[in-house]
């Protein structure tokens, strides 16, 4: 069986609203980032890959298995939704055991996998705690444990770091990196830092379309020579914002250092080119594809 997901020409509509439009992607082993704004269609694509949403057209194969074979797909896929929890009065180990039964695992295997995963996600000491007693970060880690319980070949995680504090976010990203060694992990997020820190391959989505896909380094390369900084008097800030896609501002008294993307030489005295970060590259990608106007607005 192939260790890749192939998505060909997939479209999906909710009534008259297009959620996915002619999506073409090939996702191989390792961490794959899906970056886009809220409402870009990431969750719809994630749910479609987890066999929780039907597509209207196109084909999807997961490790060689057509998405229509839902039972096989569910066997090989682990899914962590964006907004999830578990029965609040159930204990952590009971939750895993219950979901293990739903995955058709026998008792010995459930215990072995739960022990191993609770250790891996650092919840071993909290296994007797009720779900309602867990913090947000702990719940996310339990979420990863349940998604990996049946040892899936594909792990789909939707916005897993939203709402986590920086420390928990880093811990979570590292955890995903570890589990991605021997499987396909698709990480959907609107936080550029998550992709930058953990993914080699990625795609940028907007309004149901794939704007760009490839190696993250190439996205950075595309933005080289397009990122500028300039220090101006703060009163000129509105003019700069109306002319360029601003990606960052640091105010120092009456002066502001502005970072923006622009093709060609900007008509601003003192503007200097600078090396792009992934956030700049993402904004440039949106800008280049006409998804944001000058000034960074939609």
């Amino acid at each position: 069986m192939d260790d890749k997901i192939e998505i060909r020409n997939v479209s999906k509509k909710y009534g008259s609203k297009t959620a996915l439009e002619n999506i073409d992607l090939t996702i191989g082993k390792g961490m794959f980032g899906l970056l886009g704004r809220n409402g870009a269609g990431k969750t719809t694509l994630m749910k479609t890959l987890a066999a929780l949403h039907p597509k209207n057209s196109g084909t999807i194969t997961v490790c060689g298995v057509p998405i229509e074979e839902t039972k096989k797909i569910r066997t090989m896929t682990g899914y962590l939704p964006q907004d999830f929890s578990m029965y609040p009065t159930m204990r952590v180990e009971e939750c895993l055991d219950y979901l293990g039964v739903l995955s058709g695992m026998d008792k010995a295997l459930r215990k072995e996998r739960a022990d191993m995963l609770l250790k891996k996600v650092n919840l071993e000491k909290h296994r007797r705690k009720k779900v309602k007693e867990l913090s947000g970060g702990m719940k996310r880690r339990l979420g990863i444990a349940q998604a990996l319980l049946h040892d899936p070949r594909v792990l789909i995680v939707d916005e897993p770091t939203a709402g986590l504090d920086p420390e928990e976010r880093i811990r979570f990203r590292n955890l995903l990196g570890e589990v991605a060694e021997d499987r396909i992990v698709i990480l959907s997020t609107h936080i550029v830092g998550d992709i930058e820190a953990s993914c080699e391959m990625a795609a940028v989505m907007n309004e149901g379309r794939i704007l760009w896909t490839g190696n993250v380094k190439d996205l950075l390369k595309d933005a080289e020579g397009k990122v500028w900084t300039v220090t101006i008097e703060s009163r000129f800030l509105p003019q700069i914002k109306s002319l360029y896609s601003v990606t960052g501002m640091v105010m120092q008294g009456s002066q502001t250092t502005v970072r923006f993307v622009h093709e060609g030489t900007p008509d601003v005295t003192g503007a200097a080119q600078t090396a792009p970060c992934l956030e700049d590259a993402y904004i440039y990608c949106l800008f280049k594809n006409g998804c944001i106007d000058l000034g960074g607005e939609e």
Partner: peptide, 22 residues
């Protein structure tokens, strides 16, 4: 309604078990 109230519905939907059995 506890699956929905507990936000556990998607976790259950994505498991291998057949709908009839559950």
């Amino acid at each position: 309604s506890s699956d929905r109230r507990s936000k556990m519905q998607q976790l259950i939907f994505s498991r291998r078990i057949s709908s009839v059995k559950l």
